[in-house]
């Protein structure tokens, strides 16, 4: 622990952007849950390289990060919130579902909306064991994805495609498979942006490949 305090101190007293990044990498390498508050704080330092290192460190620590991160996500600057939402999406614990649904729908920052939108697909839905509850929550997520599939920002619509691709591949989301498939087809045919269209087509083709190999 005293050793960890030295690593935390190095992060808190780093005097340059590159020293900060280096200190964050060192702290993250300790893989110690006691580093979580410091790593979360780094997300708000407005230093992209250090924040990226903190994101990776937090993701590596897994589920233990979810509760403290959810508790500190409010009142954050939007840059930090976008990093935080990316961490939540990568860890994929459904405890983050409420926060992610709200962020995907109404966060004012596009970077947060698209990260949260993608996260709705990468949640580990199998962690909601009770099928009726899981299906109800999946439907809520799908409703938000449907709404965001009409967003003006192509990147939010692209994030919808990515989320749908993940849902399509998850056995735990099988109950929604037809609805997911039809939204992917719709976007693959009709989205005004060629990149969004092609991403959705790719999701459907992958399925085609896995069925025929």
């Amino acid at each position: 622990m005293s050793n960890l305090l030295a690593y935390i101190h190095a992060v808190e007293t780093a005097s340059s952007a590159s020293a900060l990044r280096e200190a964050v990498i060192q702290l993250a390498q300790q893989k110690d849950t006691a580093a979580i508050p410091t790593l979360i704080a780094v997300l708000g330092y407005n230093n992209p390289a250090a924040a990226q290192a903190a994101v990776e460190g937090l993701i590596a620590l897994g589920d233990a990060v979810v509760e403290p991160l959810l508790a500190q996500l409010d009142g954050y600057n939007y840059g930090a919130r976008a990093y935080g939402v990316r961490v939540l999406g990568s860890i994929g614990h459904p405890a983050a579902l409420r926060v992610l649904l709200a962020a995907a729908q109404s966060d004012f920052a596009p970077s947060v909306r698209r990260a949260a939108t993608k996260a709705l697909g990468t949640l580990r839905w199998q962690l909601i064991p009770e099928e009726t509850a899981r299906e109800a929550q999946l439907r809520e997520a799908l409703t938000v994805l449907q709404r965001n599939s009409e967003a003006a920002d192509w990147a939010v619509r692209y994030a919808v495609g990515v989320a749908l691709d993940h849902l399509y591949q998850q056995a735990a989301a099988r109950a929604l498979r037809e609805a997911v498939c039809s939204l992917l087809k719709h976007l693959g045919d009709r989205d005004p942006d060629i990149v969004v269209r092609s991403r959705c087509q790719l999701a459907l083709q992958r399925d085609y490949l896995s069925m025929h190999i």
């Binding site: 990147a155 692209y158 994030a159 990515v162 991403r199 790719l202």
Partner: peptide, 11 residues
């Protein structure tokens, strides 16, 4: 494919 993967990661 790798360009799509890059975009996915940037979200």
């Amino acid at each position: 494919l790798s360009l799509f993967q890059g975009l996915d990661q940037l979200l």
